Amino acid sequence: MLSNHQIDLVQDSFAAVVPITDHAAAEFYRRLFELAPDTKPLFRHGMAEQGRKLFLTLATVVDALDRLDTIVPVARELAIRHLAYGAQDRHYAAVGSALIETLRAGLGPAFDSATETAWTAAYTILADTMLAAVREAI
């Protein structure tokens, strides 16, 4: 569970990333493909479009962190779609690492330890929800 302070940290830091969305998305995928090269073939659309989808999804999740019950159905559907694309359980850790590294690089000193902890907690909730949905589906 996220505290109100953690939700504020995630939402405020995400707002600071929004102006650099294109750069952050490119950096995220660069880091993801470095950490898990086997994920690259899973992306069939142009990477600019994929980056927009990534940040739209992140925006939806970040906006609803104080209403986790609204995120769960979305996360479950997203997980099932990703399963069909070929995503594997181990990819979730790589995505989480790439996200944290991208935020750290993009936000610099504003990405302090409390903000990193908040993002890690938020991503863990999302990934655990998605992984549970995948396990139920197979």
Rank of each mutant, 00 (worst) to 15 (best):
R67N: 10
L126H: 05
E49F: 13
A133V: 12
R104N: 08
T117R: 11
T102K: 04
T60R: 15
I125R: 12
Y123K: 04
I20W: 03
R81Q: 15
L99S: 00
D63C: 07
A26M: 07
D12E: 14
L103S: 00
M47D: 01
A75V: 08
T21I: 02
V134W: 14
N4D: 10
L107P: 06
D38C: 04
S97A: 14
F33R: 01
D112K: 07
T102H: 07
D66T: 05
D89I: 09
G106H: 06
V17T: 02
R44V: 04
T124N: 13
G51P: 00
R67Y: 06
L126E: 10
P37C: 06
H82N: 04
V18G: 01
V74F: 13
L56H: 12
E101R: 10
A114K: 09
I100H: 02
A59Y: 05
Y92K: 05
G86Q: 08
A24D: 00
V72E: 15
A93C: 06
M1I: 10
K53V: 13
V61K: 05
E27W: 06
M1N: 08
L42F: 04
G106L: 08
K40G: 00
A16Y: 02
D69L: 04
A75P: 12
I100G: 01
R44Q: 14
I20S: 14
R67G: 03
F43P: 00
H91Y: 14
V17D: 00
L68P: 11
A48S: 08
K53I: 13
A122E: 05
G106D: 10
D66Q: 11
